[in-house]
């Protein structure tokens, strides 16, 4: 048995504070909920609908974040240019501003007369109190997870490896798909899970732009406002279980996958 020195003991003592601080409320939430209430909520179509709205919109937001975020991440990883710092800051802005502020900002441009809302309105897509509104709120607040993680993945691929592939006859687009992308896939997937999880949990901006259709966090808030703490609790437990289950499954799936530089 390794002898622990005083420093290690002190650091473990201090470090355990945050772990317990996060663990205790979640564990308490799980155990204090009423099983019957959970079952009845699982049979409630409004609750199921709200959970579906969150999961489904978050998935669409994540797919959009990957489609537009991965090319951006690749540019940021491979090129130096004037204004790069500015673009990096823009991507991180949604993390640091209050989500209600994001909601207000989105509302102003995505109303049917707003500068972005109007052209979409002509195509028959509305955002206020509609599913696309939920999706763009989620995309706005969580896409940076995909960009930052994918970028880190690309930065870990030696550019000389791409150069070798080029000399062997592979064009630049093809090189991206057969060399750069497979080698960064793990980072992209991890970023996507974070993005998706963050999107499911989004509340602040959704409540402003698209209160309806009710998303899961919104229905929890609604229950709470209607003096039904037990209702809110059981929906919370359902949502949290779902998120954790998916989180664990995906983490298990990608464990040991795509790691080439370690034994």
């Amino acid at each position: 048995m390794r002898k622990l020195d005083h420093t290690t003991i002190f650091f473990v003592f201090m470090g355990s504070f945050l772990v317990l601080f996060i663990l205790i409320p979640i564990a308490n939430l799980m155990v204090s909920s009423n099983l019957n209430s959970i079952i009845s909520n699982l049979q409630n179509s409004a609750v199921l609908g709200a959970i579906w709205v969150s999961v489904y919109s978050a998935l669409i937001a994540t797919i959009l974040a990957v489609i537009f975020g991965v090319p951006l991440a690749y540019i940021l990883a491979r090129h130096d240019f004037a204004g790069k710092g500015f673009i990096e800051s823009i991507i991180d802005v949604p993390i640091v501003i209050p989500h209600t502020v994001s909601g207000i900002a989105l509302l102003l441009v995505f109303t049917s007369s707003g500068i972005l809302g109007a052209p979409f309105n002509n195509l028959g897509i509305t955002f206020v109190n509609a599913l696309p509104g939920v999706v763009i709120c989620m995309l706005f607040v969580s896409s940076s997870f995909v960009v930052n993680s994918a970028r880190e993945g690309f930065e870990n691929v030696d550019p000389r490896m791409e150069k070798v592939a080029r000399t062997l006859g592979s064009g630049s687009m093809r090189t991206f798909f057969v060399i750069s992308l497979p080698l960064s896939l793990r980072s992209i997937v991890v970023g996507s899970i974070m993005c998706w999880a963050r999107a499911i949990s989004e509340f602040g901006s959704i409540v402003i732009l698209a209160y309806y259709p009710l998303a899961a966090p919104t229905i929890i808030y609604q229950q709470f406002e209607n003096f039904s703490l037990s209702g809110a609790t059981s929906i919370s437990v359902i949502l949290i279980s779902l998120c954790l289950a998916l989180f664990v499954v995906v983490r298990l799936l990608i464990r040991g996958w795509g790691v080439y530089d370690t034994d």
Binding site: K163, V164, R166, L168, G169, S172, I179, L183, D261
Partner: peptide, 20 residues
């Protein structure tokens, strides 16, 4: 001319084998 059209082989110091 882009590298893929030159018919030139390249070997680096750190080999740069494709790890996957």
């Amino acid at each position: 001319l882009p590298p893929e059209q030159r018919g030139v082989g390249f070997v680096y110091q750190n080999y740069m084998l494709f790890p996957h």
